[in-house]
């Protein structure tokens, strides 16, 4: 299967936080772990989220081999195997590896894998009103970003 990824074009993020609530709802998470989070630094907004890195620091750091990739390169945590050591939380440069204190396990974005298998889109992308959350094959994301850059230059 083709590799999939997700990218937030942060310039277009207007800080509505809809993605955060959509994600919590989709994953049944309560207050605490935030798999996607938008930090406000008025007038800018900084989205923090999992990039499903090619060489994922969380996977490298995990001493229990609880972090793996599926056939679409989505980086996943096996909660059964997780020993709750926080090594991935420390290793992630994006603050995207989170810890669920209720269950004592690390949690992270699974790119709404189940929704993708059903032909849907990630919950965060579905909610976003500026459509700044793009996902799909890596090549198609690159192409979209390039198209957008070209459109911007034509506008000015």
């Amino acid at each position: 299967m083709d590799r999939v990824a997700l990218l937030i074009m942060s310039e277009d993020c207007m800080g509505c936080h809809a993605c955060e609530v959509a994600c919590k709802q989709e994953h049944g998470l309560d207050v605490g772990p935030r798999l996607i989070q938008v930090v406000e630094r008025a007038p800018l907004f900084v989205p923090l989220y999992c990039h499903h890195c090619s060489r994922a620091p969380c996977q490298v750091a995990c001493p229990a081999d609880a972090i793996s990739r599926d056939d679409r390169d989505i980086v996943l945590i096996d909660e059964e195997a997780c020993i709750g050591c926080l090594a991935c939380v420390e290793a992630c440069p994006f603050g995207a590896a989170q810890f669920d204190e209720e269950r004592n396990v690390a949690v992270k974005c699974d790119l709404c894998r189940e929704r993708l298998l059903d032909g849907g889109e990630p919950a965060c992308a579905r909610a976003c009103p500026t459509r700044c959350i793009v996902w799909g094959g890596v090549k198609s994301i690159s192409e979209r970003v390039a198209r957008r850059a070209a459109a911007r230059q034509l506008m000015t």
Binding site: C16, A18, E20, V21, A22, Q25, A123, R126, C128
Partner: peptide, 24 residues
């Protein structure tokens, strides 16, 4: 158990805000 935007609706067009999404 969950709400999400209706892509076919003329208002919202499939998106929802944090307040609506938190209705449960």
């Amino acid at each position: 158990t969950k709400v999400e935007g209706d892509s076919e609706a003329p208002i919202g067009r499939g998106t929802m805000c944090s307040k609506g999404l938190a209705v449960t």
